[in-house]
């Protein structure tokens, strides 16, 4: 889908009108539920996702290679002088990465460690979608995949800031930059293929499926070996309103870089805060009122000075 100037202006107009309406709605109802799926959103029935299990990952990085091949991403060799594909984090050339957590104490022999695969979490209620002013980021209503559409993107990078998992990455070095993130290989799914990372994983550490099935699978794994899994919890079932990519871990989730999020939807929280700020447009009006009063006062002062000056010098007032 491409967008011309007329359409862009139309979208902007609609967005402005929408903001005004939302403000009015917020004003009347006092909640932000109209703008988001509420604090505890439900995943769509057809939601697909992935399940990653740290106890199964052997750190072979086959998924890293497969991902860049499947998504036509040029391997990031900047830090390795062209020797290896060696990204240090998700970036504009890396939509999927394997990282390593090691226990802080370096003297510990056989200390705890874990590999972790990081990519887009495909949130049930994504903050990036909520923050995007132009609908460049959209969530598929059926399978729930969060997609980025080039022609709609204005490059504001709000999504980068909004994402609690630090996933969307901006292509700084490119003249026509993109936002790069995992799109769950949505170009492969219609061909009956799994996401590339799930296809190549030799230990099924990451598997693809319907979110419901994955959740069941995860819970049965916990039930089979409750002592292995940290807090007997599936990360992503409820965190930040729930994600479609789920994690099982034998180490604390924060250790493998998954933030400790409340159960409330991040997107809902953001809209809720905005709801308070813009309630009846009260706070903006107060702020603007105070500013106007200050300017008005200063203006009077300035006029008086100018008049005095004119009297003294005989020259006309210069304001």
């Amino acid at each position: 889908m491409t967008m011309d100037r007329r359409q862009a202006l139309k979208t902007l107009g609609q967005a402005c009108a929408g903001t005004a309406t939302a403000a009015a709605t917020v004003g009347t109802s006092g909640t932000a539920e109209a703008a988001s799926g509420g604090p505890y959103p439900d995943a769509s029935p057809g939601a697909v996702g992935m399940l990653f299990d740290t106890t199964r990952c052997i750190g072979c990085k086959a998924c890293v290679v497969a991902c860049s091949e499947a998504n036509d991403l040029v391997p990031d060799t900047v830090l390795a002088n062209g020797l290896w594909q060696m990204p240090m984090d998700l970036n504009a050339r890396t939509a999927n990465i394997i990282k390593l957590y090691k226990e802080e104490d370096e003297d510990a022999v056989g200390g705890e460690y874990s590999y972790v695969k990081r990519q887009c979490m495909h949130c049930v209620d994504p903050a990036c979608v909520a923050s995007c002013p132009f609908k460049a980021l959209t969530k598929d209503p059926e399978n729930g995949i969060v997609m980025w559409e080039a022609s709609q993107c204005i490059g504001c990078r709000y999504c980068e800031v909004a994402c609690p998992f630090e996933v969307p990455k901006f292509e700084w070095e490119d003249f026509n930059p993109r936002i790069v993130k995992c799109q769950l290989c949505s170009h492969r799914l219609p061909e009956g293929l799994e996401p590339a990372c799930c296809e190549v994983c030799p230990t099924d550490a990451v598997i693809f499926g319907a979110r419901e099935d994955l959740l069941k699978d995860a819970k049965s794994r916990i039930a089979a070996k409750p002592e292995v899994y940290y807090e007997q919890k599936v990360y992503g079932e409820r965190e930040g309103g729930g994600t479609q990519v789920l994690y099982l871990s034998h180490v604390p989730f924060t250790a493998i870089g998954l933030p400790d999020l409340p159960d409330e939807s991040i997107a809902w929280y953001g809209t809720w805060v905005h709801g308070i700020i813009y309630k009846w447009l009260l706070i903006p009006m107060i702020v603007y009122g105070v500013m106007a009063a200050i300017i008005r006062k200063r203006w009077h002062h300035h006029e008086e000075e100018a008049r005095e000056q004119a009297k003294k010098t005989g020259l006309p007032q210069q304001i």
């Binding site: 060799t77 020797l83 290896w84 990204p87 990282k99 390593l100 972790v116 250790a255």
Partner: peptide
Amino acid sequence: IHDVTPPDTYPPVTS
């Protein structure tokens, strides 16, 4: 090197 592959090292969880 044309067909680069990942090395035997890993980035830390927190960059």
